[in-house]
């Protein structure tokens, strides 16, 4: 398909090539322990998290430096989100949610560096993240509330005749949660990067290249916004699901 376009118009569109997973050392076979570009950029995400959250706060200054106030801002942002949505008893999960948030934010922003690789654009990554949340919420809900957790699907405020129908809908929507949770994040990141690549393909034609470069700039700005908003949305949905597990009163 891409070859088609290449033959007819001299244009080369390879919007999906940037998501290829390659062995850093050039090996053809990728086994579970191979160091790939994905693992390199995940490692860089760890470095970014450590730099942002640990190195900047090493002075423990009362009057924070710029880096420290960013770290404190991130802390306060997620802390307030968890407290507002799940309540005081949800704060046990604050480090867990903070981990998700910091990983997604760092991976997203590192992925915006030209030529880089974005781990969060892969379903393998986001499905694991979403399934981790889903399993946590389900297990926690049953451990904490027992059979009462099933009340989440039995809408007591609805008329009795409607309740079985609503229960089916609720169960479906409950099991669709991890699907939409993971595809939302990967889809958003992938879409933005692919669109930038398509614009970059158009830049090969001299006449439209200024427009294409303008388009790349605009999409890049949008992607910066999307990177943060998707991390925020992923985190706040995690909080909302956790609230269901902690307080299943519908």
């Amino acid at each position: 398909m891409a070859d088609d376009a290449a033959k007819s118009g001299g244009l080369e569109f390879h919007p999906m090539d940037q998501f290829n997973i390659k062995d850093v050392f050039g090996g053809a076979e990728i086994s579970w322990y191979t160091i790939t570009n994905a693992s390199v950029w995940m490692g860089l995400a760890i470095v970014a998290v450590v730099a942002l959250m640990v190195l900047t706060t090493s002075k423990r200054a009362i009057v924070p430096s710029r880096g420290q106030s960013v770290a404190e801002l991130a802390y306060g942002f997620v802390y307030k989100m968890v407290e507002d949505v799940t309540g005081k008893d949800g704060l046990v999960f604050f480090p867990y949610i903070m981990t998700l948030f910091m990983f997604i934010v760092c991976a997203n922003f590192l992925g915006l560096i030209p030529g880089s690789f974005t781990p969060t654009s892969h379903f393998a990554v986001t499905v694991v993240l979403a399934m981790a949340v889903f399993l946590t919420v389900t297990i926690l809900g049953f451990v904490k509330n027992g059979a009462k957790f099933l009340g989440l699907f039995w809408v007591a405020s609805a008329p009795l005749a409607l309740r079985p129908v609503l229960a089916i809908i609720e169960i479906i929507s409950y099991f669709v949660r991890p699907v939409s949770h993971s595809i939302r994040l990967a889809g958003n990141v992938m879409a933005g990067h692919a669109v930038i690549k398509v614009f970059a393909g158009f830049a090969a034609i001299a006449v439209v290249s200024p427009v294409a470069i303008l388009g790349i700039t605009a999409m890049y700005a949008l992607e910066i916004l999307v990177s943060f908003i998707q991390a925020y949305v992923f985190t706040i949905l995690t909080c909302v699901y956790l609230k269901d597990a902690l307080h299943p009163s519908h």
Partner: peptide, 27 residues
């Protein structure tokens, strides 16, 4: 604002699904 973002996320997820279908058909 939190509710706003959750609502936007839910609405947008369905658009992303259709985008995904398009990608699957293309590639």
């Amino acid at each position: 604002t939190a509710t706003l973002f959750i609502g936007i996320a839910f609405a947008e997820a369905l658009g992303i699904f259709s985008f995904l279908v398009a990608l699957l058909l293309m590639f």
